[in-house]
């Protein structure tokens, strides 16, 4: 059995214990408060590191705009800018 197979089998036995909730620790930098306050009502914060580090400034602008325009995220202009700046600086390219 490969190491991976053993690991999977052992993890399966943890099912009775219950899986731990997804932990996403965002980089602690200016703007992270606005992200944590506005970006986890609908989904996990994990979407942010998941989509990193390849999005450029235009890419993160487009993401924040999509959340507000397409998905109805109730985020005001000031917060949207702070969030986009944070994402570009800490999760962008």
């Amino acid at each position: 059995m490969t190491k991976i197979t053993i690991a999977l089998a052992a993890l399966a036995s943890l099912a009775a214990v219950g899986a731990s909730a997804q932990e996403v620790k965002l980089k602690q930098a200016p703007g992270v408060d606005a992200v944590e306050a506005n970006c986890q009502a609908c989904h996990t914060l994990a979407y942010i590191p998941m989509n990193s580090p390849f999005l450029n400034a235009a890419g993160w602008d487009a993401e924040v705009t999509k959340m507000i325009k397409a998905f109805g995220a109730p985020i005001d202009d000031g917060d949207a800018k702070a969030i986009a700046d944070y994402l570009k600086k800490n999760y962008g390219t």
Binding site: L11, Q22, V24, P49, N51
Partner: peptide, 27 residues
């Protein structure tokens, strides 16, 4: 896959499932 996934992804066992790669838990 993007390197950002490595920073947080883990194997997780949902009810009735064997370990799966957890990209997001909610949704």
């Amino acid at each position: 896959v993007p390197t950002g996934v490595e920073s947080y992804a883990k194997m997780a066992t949902l009810p009735g499932k064997k370990p799966l790669i957890e990209l997001a838990d909610r949704p």
